[in-house]
Design a protein around this nucleic acid. Structure first.
Lengths: 199, 199
DNA sequence: ATATTAAGTCCGCAACTGTTGACTTTTTTC
DNA sequence: GAAAAAAGTCAACAGTTGCGGACTTAATAT
């Protein structure tokens, strides 16, 4: 058995993981390939060798992060609670199902090089899978409204660090989010469903 | 009266306006000072002369965009409808009251150079003014939840260009947003307020 | 009309970016 | 063990970026 100091697959993975961590905390433009390589403990040139370009590395990260974040067997009724839970959880940790993908999408959504890539990734891999679980007419629209809430929560909590959303007792916030998501996902878009019987 | 081809105040304003337009469409890092100067029809060096640095130019843009976007005399009850209206309107045009500020904040929130600046601008100039209009206990938290929705709407519509939110008949979407904002702003954070009499 | 000051332009520096090619070292294969 | 291929390192290129100093042009004041 040879001592393997050189392992292509391993360093490729290390590079990918380092990139994932970086893209999770900074925008596409603010992540330098030299930083990523330093984190992975290898040289910058390996990025070019294994991924071709920075953009393809980003694409791979996006594709590899939380690929099956949505439990296939979650029912439409359980969806609001499920999503509210995801929105609140720190995102730290090894959790396989998380909204990390949303964060990466969000951070690099305003970079010309990645905007289109990120846009289609959001629609195809995030929005539509949820919309497919919804019964009724305007499934896509209702899912979009729901993700409005989830995206906003990620923005205010993780990116802007708004204290009221971080401090307030988690259970109360989670309950409120669940309520809002129920209204967004399960009630018809335009209707008198009359959630609030107020003026 | 001398023909004035050189006017300090005017070019400073032109520079500011050009920067505003750029920062509205791209992130802090992706806006080049040379582009801004070209749009304003002057030389790059003027940016340094009038604003000192790119960061201070950005600060000024942020401070000058929609300074009094919130009508001082809007009541708490009218707030949901008011905000829903703002979230939907295109943002194009001369509208003095708009959520352009949110968009600028959002685009540059992930740039190390501007993240802190943008964070305090959001809390002090956007979140707290709304929170101050709210009666009751958890005003800050409720305002934060509401801005979750507004931020998310801006993200999905303007940055990600999600079609379902752009196409669906505006009035239906606006009504839904108003409903959600009412729930977020006016109902107690944790409570049985029972907006939805469902399981 | 001339001198003075403000307004604007041109040029270049220094740092950083992604990317590529030549080179060295390790691993595998025969 | 030698040869071939893979894995990794180093250095440099070409393009930007923000920024600052030297210079020129226009407006003002005397």
């Amino acid at each position: 058995m040879t001592k393997r100091q050189k392992n292509a697959a391993a360093t490729r993975e290390a590079l990918l993981e380092a990139a994932r961590r970086r893209f999770l905390e900074e925008s596409y433009d603010n992540v330098g390939l030299r930083d990523v390589a330093k984190d992975a403990g290898v040289d910058v040139a390996l990025v070019g060798r294994y991924f071709g370009s920075k953009e393809e590395l980003f694409r791979e990260v996006l594709r590899g992060t939380c690929p099956h974040w949505l439990d296939a067997d979650v029912t439409a009724e359980a969806l609001p609670a499920f999503l509210a839970r995801l929105a609140i959880e720190a995102g730290e940790g090894d959790t396989q199902e998380s909204l990390d993908r949303l964060l990466i999408i969000l951070r690099s959504a305003s970079s010309p090089a990645t905007s289109e890539l990120v846009r289609t990734a959001f629609v195809e891999d995030v929005l539509e899978p949820v919309a497919r679980l919804l019964p009724g007419e305007d499934a896509q629209s209702r899912a979009a409204v729901a993700f409005t809430i989830l995206m906003g929560t990620k923005v205010l909590r993780t990116i802007l660090g708004v204290q009221p959303l971080l401090q307030c007792q988690a259970c109360a916030l989670e309950a409120k989010l669940e309520l809002l998501l129920t209204e967004a996902l399960l009630k018809p878009l335009s209707g008198d469903s009359g959630a609030t019987g107020e003026s």
